[in-house]
Computed example of a mutant assay.
Amino acid sequence: MSIGENIKKKREKIGVSQKTLAEALGIAENTVASWEKGKNIPPSDKAIDLARFFKCSTDEILLEESEREVVDEMKALFRRFSDLPDYVKPMARNIISGMLSSLELEDYFRDLGGPRR
């Protein structure tokens, strides 16, 4: 779904007209219409205003559904990470980043037909 389709879907879900949404955001009604038709995209400040208006994340406005899906396994890892003490989080980020880089490098060499570790 495009940004415009996301906006229209959210607007229609709560039963708000383009005019009402435009007034709430302090913009012209035809601006909302142009977003929904995909002629223009909202600037970052308006994307934030839209998210606040619809009580959702900016991801729900700006990204396609498939781009914002997180599998349950990853949600569990995110929860575990958020439960870590703040002083440990930078170290955990570095460890995770290093592990991912190593795995990506392994795939890179495999794709080149080079030596495996």
Rank of each mutant, 00 (worst) to 15 (best):
A33Q: 15
I61L: 06
P42M: 07
I41F: 06
E64V: 00
W35I: 09
N30S: 11
W35C: 02
A51H: 06
T58H: 02
E67I: 00
F54T: 02
E36S: 02
W35A: 05
E67S: 10
K39L: 11
V71G: 03
S44R: 12
E65W: 01
I41N: 15
F54H: 03
S57M: 06
N40Y: 14
S57T: 15
I61D: 09
P43D: 14
K46Q: 12
V71M: 05
A28Y: 14
N30L: 03
K55A: 09
N40K: 13
V32E: 05
I61H: 06
D45H: 12
V70I: 15
E36H: 04
R52F: 05
E73Y: 06
K46P: 01
E73G: 04
L62P: 01
E60Y: 13
A51G: 02
E60C: 04
E60K: 09
E36M: 05
R52L: 09
F53A: 03
C56T: 15
T31Y: 12
I48G: 00
A51L: 07
E69I: 08
T31F: 11
A51F: 04
I61G: 03
T58F: 02
K55W: 04
P43N: 13
D45P: 00
R52P: 00
A28E: 14
D45I: 13
K37C: 06
E60P: 00
E73L: 09
C56L: 06
F53L: 07
E73V: 05
S44L: 10
K39E: 15
E36C: 02
G38M: 11
T31G: 01
E29Q: 15
E73W: 04
P43Y: 14
G38N: 08
E29K: 12
A28C: 03
E60R: 08
E64Q: 14
A33D: 14
I41Q: 15
I41P: 00
A28M: 11
I41A: 09
E67T: 01
L50E: 08
F53N: 02
C56F: 07
V71K: 11
D59E: 15
I41L: 04
I61Y: 06
S34Y: 14
W35F: 13
I27R: 10
S66T: 13
I61R: 05
L63D: 10
A33K: 13
E29F: 07
E67W: 04
D72T: 12
S57P: 02
F54N: 03
I48V: 14
D45Q: 09
I48Q: 13
D49V: 01
S57G: 04
S34H: 14
T31R: 13
P42F: 08
D72H: 08
E67G: 00
A51N: 07
A28R: 14
L63M: 08
S44K: 13
E60H: 07
D49N: 08
D59T: 05
D59I: 02
E73P: 00
K55D: 15
T31P: 00
I61K: 04
